[in-house]
Simulated scan of single mutants.
Amino acid sequence: MADFKDTGLIMSGDIFMAEVDADGKFGALNGPMNVPSLSITPTSVNRISRPSFQKDNYGQALDAVNLPSDSASVTIQFDSMPAAMLAETLGGTAELADAEADSVTGEALTLTEGAWAALPHSSLAAGSVVVTKDATDVTADCDINRSAGLIKARSASAAGDVTMDYDTEAVTGHRVMGDTEISKPRYILVDGINLATGKRTRVEIFRAVLSADQATELMGTEFITGQLSGSLVVPPGKGAAYTATMYS
């Protein structure tokens, strides 16, 4: 080992995360992500000692053993929020939400004057919506929210049972299925720099069994943040749950 040299440690880093299986094999990495906090808590212990009742050292420990209690754990906070990370934040999974353009005819719906009704589709094409009641076009008496796929009758003459014809636009995106993944085994990589020395650092967390553990304010005035926390697990063949390397 090299000679001891007194230095401080403040890290900045590009952080990546991936799903990982029980053998420690991980898939595609998401990142780099902006992480204001990544904290590791060592294994907590129960301290067992054998006190002396002898006259020369009464009350002192003759033996002491630390027995493991809770395993080492990690907490990661992030404010990078593409769909994959929103899914992590909400304890869910992400799936593709792509849809091709389509045409819908004769969609039956009952409208109530002054209240919105939801269509089975959203992303309606501009100028494509036709609302018919008793063979009469009542489109002009309706408000239409094309993005959300909502329609509202503005008058009694447009309320009641209607049929609708409309086109939908092609869309691409991702849908988060909330609260569908309680246990999230993850690999975490930190490609960092010690700001005190300018030297490279690297942290690998081989397998952390995480879960989302805080409320998510979707309509706040600050950027949404996510937080995952959980226990660190030693995968087969690794010898440790994580490593921290400081390069010279």
Rank of each mutant, 00 (worst) to 15 (best):
D3Q: 08
F4T: 15
L9I: 01
L9R: 05
M11Q: 12
M11E: 09
G13V: 13
F16P: 06
F16W: 14
M17S: 02
A18I: 12
E19D: 12
A22M: 10
A22F: 02
K25V: 13
G27V: 04
G27N: 03
A28H: 05
L29S: 05
N30D: 11
P32Q: 13
P32K: 15
L38E: 07
T41C: 05
T41G: 00
N46K: 15
R47V: 15
S49M: 01
P51Y: 11
K55T: 09
Y58R: 08
Q60I: 10
V65M: 08
V65Q: 09
V65E: 10
D70H: 07
S71W: 02
S71H: 03
F78P: 08
S80M: 00
P82L: 04
A84P: 05
A84K: 13
M85G: 01
G91T: 03
G91A: 00
G92N: 12
T93E: 12
E95V: 14
L96C: 01
A101M: 08
V104K: 12
T105N: 10
E107Y: 06
L109S: 08
L109V: 14
L124Y: 08
A125I: 09
A126D: 11
G127W: 13
V130Q: 04
V131Q: 02
V131A: 01
D134E: 14
D134T: 13
T136A: 07
C142S: 06
C142K: 11
D143Q: 09
N145E: 13
N145W: 07
R146K: 10
R146A: 14
G149W: 03
L150Q: 15
L150S: 11
A153S: 12
S155N: 11
S157E: 13
A158G: 00
G160I: 11
M164H: 04
M164L: 15
Y166M: 07
E169C: 07
A170E: 15
A170N: 14
A170Y: 11
V171R: 03
T172C: 00
T172D: 01
T172W: 02
H174Y: 14
R175I: 09
V176I: 11
V176A: 06
T180V: 02
T180K: 09
E181T: 14
R186Q: 10
L189H: 08
V190P: 00
L195K: 13
L195T: 15
L195M: 13
K199Q: 12
R200Q: 13
I205L: 10
I205A: 00
A208N: 09
L210P: 01
A212H: 12
D213H: 07
A215E: 15
L218R: 13
I224L: 06
T225F: 00
G226D: 08
Q227L: 04
S229F: 01
S231Q: 06
S231W: 00
S231I: 04
L232K: 09
P235E: 06
P235G: 03
P236R: 14
G237V: 04
G239A: 07
G239L: 06
G239K: 06
Y242N: 07
Y247I: 13
S248H: 05
S248P: 15
